[in-house]
């Protein structure tokens, strides 16, 4: 259950953004997550309130966007959808593919409340 550790890292980043923008609170957090990141969305939703409690994101809502698994075939050069344990090219069947989407674990965006106006955003 490493999702709690991941959520604690997320809260650390979100807190930094809130601090540098002098925000009173964070209302929404948007995260992109690919199945091959090794992180489970539902487990992350469960762990999030524990990590967020008592922080600037204590009342924030976590929005998870699941990313598709896609590969680029090094053999035929085409792209295709792929599965967790089947990353072969669906066009030519070759296994020499490169993952182009599906292992993301990315903090995309946060919505801050009562941010001080006119503050430089350096995130």
């Amino acid at each position: 259950m490493h999702e709690l550790a991941i959520c604690q890292a997320l809260i650390g980043q979100v807190s930094d953004v809130a601090r540098s923008n002098r925000a009173a609170a964070v209302s929404d957090i948007f995260v992109s997550i690919g199945p091959l990141s090794g992180v489970e969305g539902p487990l992350m939703q469960n762990a999030f309130p524990i990590a967020a409690a008592g922080t600037v994101a204590g009342a924030a809502k976590l929005h998870l966007r699941s990313m598709p698994i896609r590969v680029h075939c090094e053999e035929c050069g085409r792209e295709s959808e792929a599965g967790m344990n089947r990353l072969v090219c669906e066009h030519c069947g070759d296994w020499r593919t490169r993952l182009i989407s599906g292992d993301e674990l990315l903090l995309q965006r946060v919505i801050l409340e009562n941010a001080a106006a006119g503050v430089e955003k350096n995130v």
Binding site: A9, Q13, V17, L107, I111, L112, N114, A115, K121, V123
Partner: peptide, 23 residues
């Protein structure tokens, strides 16, 4: 950072685009 980045409620959307395991 845009002109209308602040909504009427005083909330503000900030792009981050950082890996969660950045640290």
């Amino acid at each position: 950072g845009g002109r209308f980045a602040h909504t009427s409620s005083g909330a503000e959307s900030v792009e981050v685009l950082k890996g969660l395991l950045d640290a």
